[in-house]
């Protein structure tokens, strides 16, 4: 769904899975040791797993499963895969679900089409996102289940879901300056 820049269309595409490239990009070096980078010319199809943080500047299609690691999709990164990681940062484009054990950040240049499940989700101004974000109240922490299909039974809502809505309680929540409301406000 995301429009690809025209220059991407002209880029040479690797049609076969390429070997994992751990060469680091010139970006600011992560403070943590054991960071792998998939460079812009690398294209991988399949499932990635491991015990190193990962920076993706290339293309990945399949699944990225680095539950205890941090994953960054760089500006050049194009990912069509679900990503499971401790922390996920997106500067490039992702089509897939993001499950962040601790958090997910979509930076200004990031585009994500998919669902996000994480205790903390941050969308920077200018970022693009379509999908669902499942949030828990701030008091709650800890891992959550990955987004997945649900049965109609499990989808049955509590009885109050089907009841008529509570009427607006604007007045109860705080004073309303009369200057904001014209005389025709009605309930």
């Amino acid at each position: 769904m995301w429009k690809r820049p025209e220059d991407e269309e002209n880029e040479p595409q690797q049609s076969t899975p390429a070997p994992f490239n751990a060469e680091k990009t010139p970006r600011p070096e992560p403070t943590r040791r054991g960071v792998a980078t998939i460079g812009p010319s690398i294209s991988i199809t399949g499932e990635l797993s491991g015990e190193e943080d990962l920076i993706i500047d290339g293309r990945i299609e399949g699944k990225v499963n680095l539950e205890k690691q941090n994953v960054t999709v760089g500006k050049a990164g194009r990912v069509k895969a679900d990503i499971v990681a401790k922390n996920i940062q997106v500067e490039g484009q992702v089509e897939g679900n993001l499950l962040g054990e601790e958090g997910v950040v979509i930076h200004q240049s990031g585009k994500v089409k998919g669902n996000i499940v994480a205790p903390r989700v941050s969308l920077e101004n200018g970022s693009k996102f379509k999908g669902a974000i499942d949030m828990e109240p701030r008091t709650s922490s800890g891992p959550r289940a990955a987004p997945g299909p649900k049965t109609p039974e499990s989808e049955a809502k509590s009885p109050q879901k089907g009841t008529p809505s509570a009427s607006p309680d604007a007045q109860a929540k705080g004073s309303i300056p009369p200057s904001d409301a014209a005389a025709s406000g009605r309930k």
């Binding site: 809505s165 607006p168 309680d169 604007a170 929540k173 309303i176 904001d180 409301a181 406000g185």
Partner: peptide
Amino acid sequence: YRSLAFPGVLAR
């Protein structure tokens, strides 16, 4: 601006 209807959304 101060919304008069949005508090109803929050209440829901």
